[in-house]
Simulated assay, not measured.
Amino acid sequence: MKDVCEVRCIHEENVQRAQRARTDDGVLDEAAALLGVISDPTRLKIMDALRLGELCVCDLAAVLSMSVSAISHQLRLLRTARLVRGRRAGKVIFYTIHDGHVEKLIDMALDHCRQRCGE
């Protein structure tokens, strides 16, 4: 199947419906930035690990076999994008996924890929 129509035509009703329902460009720009942060494999691994509960930087470093410094850098980006949040307990900060929306987003992406990969 080609990615272009073989005949040039405009389906006016469809175009008008799509134009009325379009999401605001500012919201789309924010969503693209958010997805860009998630798209890094290391950050996605961190998010995957946090799906099961809170972990501190040292825990994440052990789970992912990475340095604490590398994990800390990635967590800073995830926290800035409001994808994770921290909870201080004395000298330790435990991280969790920010909210249910983020968890659903990660779960849906992983489910989609599992289905495509035949898991």
Rank of each mutant, 00 (worst) to 15 (best):
L50H: 05
R51D: 11
L52F: 10
L55K: 13
C56W: 10
V57F: 00
V57M: 04
C58M: 07
C58W: 00
C58I: 03
D59K: 06
L60P: 03
L60H: 10
A62Y: 03
A62R: 13
V63I: 15
V63H: 12
V63K: 13
V63W: 03
S65V: 09
S67Y: 01
V68S: 04
V68D: 06
S69L: 11
S69Q: 15
S69M: 13
A70P: 02
A70Y: 01
I71C: 02
S72P: 00
H73C: 12
H73V: 09
H73F: 12
Q74Y: 04
L75D: 01
L77V: 05
L78E: 06
R79W: 02
R79C: 02
A81G: 00
A81F: 00
L83A: 03
V84F: 15
R85Q: 13
R85L: 08
G86P: 02
A89M: 14
A89Q: 11
A89Y: 13
G90E: 09
G90W: 15
K91A: 12
K91W: 07
F94V: 07
Y95A: 06
Y95D: 03
T96N: 09
T96H: 09
T96R: 08
I97N: 12
D99P: 01
D99Y: 06
G100A: 08
G100E: 11
K104R: 12
L105D: 02
L105G: 03
M108V: 02
M108N: 07
A109Y: 07
L110R: 08
H112N: 08
C113K: 06
R114Y: 05
Q115P: 00
